[in-house]
Amino acid sequence: MTSILFFEQLLNGIQFGTMLFLMSAGLTLIFGVMGLINLAHGSFYMIGAFSAALIAGLTGSFWLALLASLSGAAIAGVLIEILIIRRLYRRDHLDQVLATFALILLLSEGVRWCFGAFPLYLDIPENLNGTLPISNDIIYSKYRLFIIFMGLLIATGLYILITKTRLGVRIRAGQNDRQMISALGVDISKLYTIVFALGASLAGLAGAMIGAIQSVEVGMGEPILILAFVVIVIGGIGSIKGALIGSILVGVTDTIGRIFLPELLKIFMEPSSATSVGSSIGSMLIYILMAFVLIIKPSGLFGKT
């Protein structure tokens, strides 16, 4: 029984982790290439989810909705980069934090204006509904498996993009020496716009996929944004590999911790206080993990020192 529960929760953790990866990959790329802390990254998650809900409502197709989430968030990303973000690259971190914080207020209220305060719902397509037997005793949600699959697909895609393509070479060069690659004739501001839009569209896709399990509402992006920050701090800011490992670590720790810590504490304590203490500490576990990593390696697991 417990081993089945454990395996299920492990899969849940990995599924959560792959979603975190879609968020944190963009965040870490944007920081690595442009040196920008983007608090408004969660807003693209929200914009992606709302674009998807809008298109799903009009066409009824989940796949078109996913496409809409990618393109909706990418378009928003390009516009915002050109209008606002572009002016922040040369500023210090404080200005970036504040301007993107203000951007959250702007975008959240803007979306509330357009769509109203009530949450929208996005339906899982027919053929991904239901469960799939993984082994004799374990059955697992098809849709969640689909999310894990998509996450792995995109991780592989990003890996190929960064290591094998011309754009990837430019991105890596941009991470190492911005002035040098612009001196070599690369249109740096176009590159920045592309990287920003790429990050935004990944966040948008994550928003749409999670939006189908939870609900699509204003403010949905901020909790996951904070977790994505924890991920990239653990993984090392600027490192995509770090983001992947950090995401899985955070996803699994959070999910397993919340479920099993209260159970574990029941061995030592009376059940009622074990539940309250366990769930409190369970919800703090990833932050404790992060503090721990930073004490040992202040620049994260894969960060440059």
Binding site: I226, V233, I237
Partner: peptide
């Protein structure tokens, strides 16, 4: 950035 984020996380 790490300082900004770790204070946020606490």
């Amino acid at each position: 950035v790490y300082f900004i984020m770790i204070t946020l996380a606490f």
